[in-house]
Amino acid sequence: MARKASNTRKAVVTIAAWSIGFLIFFPILWIIILGFKSEGDAIKTPLQVLFSDWTLQSYHDVQARSNYGRHFWNSVILSVGSTVIALAIAIPAAWSMAFVPGRRTKDLLMWMLSTKMMPAVGVLVPMYLLFRDFGLLDSRIGLVGVLTLINLPIVVWMLYTYFKEIPGEILEAARMDGASLKSEILYVLTPMAVPGIASTMLLNIILAWNEAFWTLQLTTSQAAPLTQFIASYSSPEGLFYAKLSAASTMAIAPILILGWFSQKQLVRGLTFGAVK
């Protein structure tokens, strides 16, 4: 009897959860569907859209007309480049704060976090002028620099919370066995730290890929990543739903897949370790 009741309950929860999940996911599902329709069909009523013919035409059009490839590579270079540089700077910093904490380590961490609280618009004007004067507007180098700096605090923090969980006794044991600092890092710490570094990397690639303030302000065409490329569809000419959908699908697909792998790290990274 109790078993049956709980099964009914489970069925009700299942239906409710699936309906809400579907509703939330629907806009994404819809652009995936529209991307495979012709422009004429894409603006019809939802049911007509569903039963119209499928085509790859929009994908061809987007590739041919707007140089999608360049924007895609810009996104890859900007997000991966800024993440790798940030990691190179942050790993030693987080390592030293986690394993050789000083009196001011906590203050230092809080201060790093506080730089993240500064709204981007507060430094928009000087950044724009600096970029203009140094000829960095619409250059990938300049933007990689900015993205590195805005994500550096998150990278340091995430790495710190991961490194903090590596037990210090292991280091002591290694030291007792006569391991040097170098072999300590190489053979003891690195294997334990790799998962944390990997999740930090994943989350930061996602954040940099979707960053849409600086990428919109500081690029126009040459260095423009996918955020800017999609924004160029905001003033369309003629029929464009299917093409916008195809372009959008291509812009979000890689990160959607990466994102699903990093759900757990997302919570930790974005709450600076406050929720695990």
Binding site: I230, W260, L266
Partner: peptide
């Protein structure tokens, strides 16, 4: 997975869609 998905959509895409 379905519920989390919108968070990974870049702001310009979700706004235009």
């Amino acid at each position: 997975v379905l519920v989390i998905a919108p968070f990974f959509v870049m702001p310009t895409v979700s706004a235009l869609v």
